[in-house]
């Protein structure tokens, strides 16, 4: 097979959805009945896309449209990109102190 074809196959594989691990806490964990789950996020997906996928799961409709979110322990805006290997956390309103 010519090397160009291999390159195309490689690119097509890169378009496969990426499984992203999502952590849930507090009320959100209770709504979804789990404290973590995995969703298939399209390449060049965003946190907002992750939220949309989670909201489609049973119990997910109870999530707000725009929850607080973090990637790898740092709070991020919903338009932040997600890539393979990152851990997305959806954070209920904080109530420490």
């Amino acid at each position: 097979m010519p090397s160009e074809d291999l390159s195309i196959i490689s690119q097509m594989k890169s378009l496969d959805p990426t499984p992203i691990r999502v952590l849930l806490f507090g009320r959100y964990a209770e709504l979804l009945g789990a404290d973590h789950l995995t969703v298939p996020v399209p390449v060049s997906g965003t946190v907002e896309g992750v939220v949309d996928l989670v909201r489609q799961l049973p119990g997910g409709q109870g999530l707000p449209d725009r929850p607080l979110a973090a990637i790898d322990l740092v709070q991020v805006p919903l338009n932040a990109s997600v890539r393979a290997g990152v851990e997305v956390a959806l954070l209920p309103p904080m109530a420490g102190g």
Binding site: G26, A89, P92, M94, A95, G96
Partner: peptide, 29 residues
């Protein structure tokens, strides 16, 4: 420190009431 903690640190509080109900504290509700 206390203002930033309340705004930024992912800690949650569940309250238990004398009437038997309970709930997550949501400062935005």
């Amino acid at each position: 420190v206390i203002e930033e903690l309340k705004r930024r640190v992912p800690i949650w509080k569940r309250e238990y009431f004398a009437d038997g109900t309970e709930g997550w504290v949501d400062p935005t509700a």
